[in-house]
Simulated assay, not measured.
Amino acid sequence: MSAAEEAVPFGAAISVRSLGDGTFTADLRPEWSIGAHPHGGFLLALLARSAQAALAERGEPQAEPLVVSTEFLHPPAIGPVLLRTELHKLGRRATVVGVRLEQRGRSCVEARVTTGRLPTRRPEWTDVPPVPAEPPPGAIQIGANTAEGAFNLAKACDVRLDPSTVGYLAGRTADAPRIRLWVRPRTGQPDAYFALLAGDVNPPVVFNVGRMGWAPTVQLTALIRCRPAPGWLRVQVDCRAIHESWFDSDATVIDSAGRLICQARQLALAPGP
C-alpha cells in the first residue's frame, strides 16, 4: 500500500463477495497484516463474517458471532482468497457454520462459527480485570515495526500498550507474561467482529521472557459475549504456561462501559530463546 493510499476501514476489509453457492471471495489487504502474514484476529473476523453472509444468503434471520473456533493450517498471503461455508446445525438459539479459507487450492484456515443473538441486558455476574477505561498519558503506541515484523495494523488501528507490562521494550527478559493494552479502529467504532481482532491484537506475551520473533497461532477460540460500546477496547492478556516451544495466551476484552466483550484463548508456538 502506497503512503498516499488510505487504509480500508475494518468493515469494508472483512466484506465478502458471494459466488451464489455458499462460497465467497475476499481480499486480504496489507494494512490488516503483520509482516507478510494477514493478522490472525482479522482472519477470525473474516471467517465469522463469511458465516453470517452464508446464513443471510439462505434467508435466515440476522445472526451474530458467538464463538469462533479456528485452526491455522498454513499462513495465507496478502491477496485474494476463497471462503467455503458448510451448514452444520441450524438451530433456534445457536447455529453452527463451518468455514474454510483457501488460497491457490490449499486450505489455510478452518473454523467452526457458532452464531445467534448476543445478549443486550446487563450480566447477572461478571469478573473482569481492573484495566483503566482509556490509555494513560504514558501509554506506548505501537508503531510500524515490531519483533514479529512490520505492524501494518498501525495504519488501521490505534493500539496503545501499558508500559508497565511490556518490559521487553526496555530490554528486560524476566517479567511476567502478561500484557495490557487498548485498541480501537482508526475509522468508525468497534463492533462484535472488531472484538475478534482485539482478542489477538497484542504482542506475544512470551516477548516478556525474552522469546522474541514470530509466534504463529496454531489454534484460537474466541467467545463474543456482547456488542461493544463506542470507544476504546481494553485488553488484558495472560499466560498460564510456557512449555518448551508451546505457550498459551488468554485475552480478556472489555469495552468502554466496563462490560466483558470477548474472551480469546490460543495455543501458539514460541520463538526460540
Rank of each mutant, 00 (worst) to 15 (best):
A3D: 15
A12K: 14
A13V: 03
I14S: 01
I14D: 02
S15F: 04
S15G: 15
L19R: 15
G22I: 03
R29V: 15
I34H: 00
A45N: 00
Q52R: 12
A54Y: 02
L55K: 08
E64N: 04
P75C: 01
P80R: 11
V81P: 05
L82Q: 14
R84F: 00
T85I: 03
L87H: 06
A94M: 15
V99Y: 02
E102P: 05
Q103V: 10
R104A: 15
C108R: 07
T126N: 03
V128A: 06
V128M: 05
P130V: 08
V131E: 02
P132L: 06
P132H: 07
E134H: 07
P136R: 11
I142Q: 12
G143A: 03
N145S: 10
T146Q: 04
F151S: 00
D158I: 04
V159I: 14
L161M: 14
D162M: 07
S164N: 12
T165V: 09
G167C: 09
R172W: 11
R172L: 13
D175H: 08
P177G: 13
R178K: 13
L181E: 09
L181N: 01
W182P: 01
R184F: 03
A192K: 05
L197N: 00
N202T: 13
N202R: 12
P203S: 06
N208C: 06
G210N: 05
G213K: 00
A215P: 03
Q219H: 13
Q219F: 09
R225S: 11
C226Q: 15
G231N: 02
L233I: 01
Q236F: 01
R240M: 07
E244L: 13
S245C: 08
F247D: 01
D248A: 01
D250C: 08
V253F: 05
D255V: 08
R259M: 12
Q263E: 14
A264M: 06
R265E: 14
R265M: 14
L267P: 07
